[in-house]
């Protein structure tokens, strides 16, 4: 009997393989139940037309009771999207990844939320405190206590 988190993730993986991912989102790798990678692009007429980003999900043993650690991957081939809620190190300030996480949410629903967050963006800019945050940011975005404001973007 595997742990609850592994069983739940296995089910989500089966569903992704079975039903497919939403448009613009592709599963890149899910070799274990700790780290998954997705590619995400925003389709249609948006500021991010033609850009493809890479998302990393990290799960701990408490998933789905506790949220997964989700961030954009920044390496030679991928950059974090320029967005008022996304830091240049890939960390994302989104309430559903922190306080507003609910165990009924899933990997797919997080992807869709982030996709719509990008799609609704009206001006490409970094968060105002980007440099200060990035200089001291912890490795895991879950260790950051974000301060969520009313979404005006």
């Amino acid at each position: 009997m595997a742990s609850i988190s592994a069983r739940r993730l296995k089910k989500e993986l089966t569903e992704i393989n079975h039903e497919g991912t939403p448009t613009g989102i592709k599963l890149l790798s899910a070799d274990d139940f700790e780290t998954w990678f997705f590619s995400i692009e925003v389709l249609g007429n948006t500021l991010y037309q033609g850009e493809v980003f890479k998302l990393m999900f990290r799960f701990d043993g408490h998933y789905p009771i506790s949220s997964p650690a989700v961030q954009f991957v920044v390496d030679q081939t991928h950059q974090a999207p320029i967005h008022p809620h996304v830091y240049s190190n890939g960390h994302i300030c989104a309430s559903i990844l922190g306080n507003d996480w609910s165990p009924v949410l899933s990997v797919a629903s997080v992807c869709i939320t982030l996709q719509s967050m990008l799609a609704s963006c009206k001006s490409k800019e970094r968060p105002p405190d980007n440099d200060r945050y990035v200089a001291h940011a912890p490795d895991n975005p879950k260790k950051t206590r974000f301060h969520y404001d009313v979404d005006r973007v």
Partner: peptide, 22 residues
């Protein structure tokens, strides 16, 4: 940004509080 692979020079346990970022 290179979370897993990089020996980060920053102590990972310092919580950063960021104000009015949005």
């Amino acid at each position: 940004g290179q979370s897993e692979k990089t020996p980060s020079p920053v102590a990972p346990d310092i919580p950063v509080k960021s104000e009015d970022m949005e």
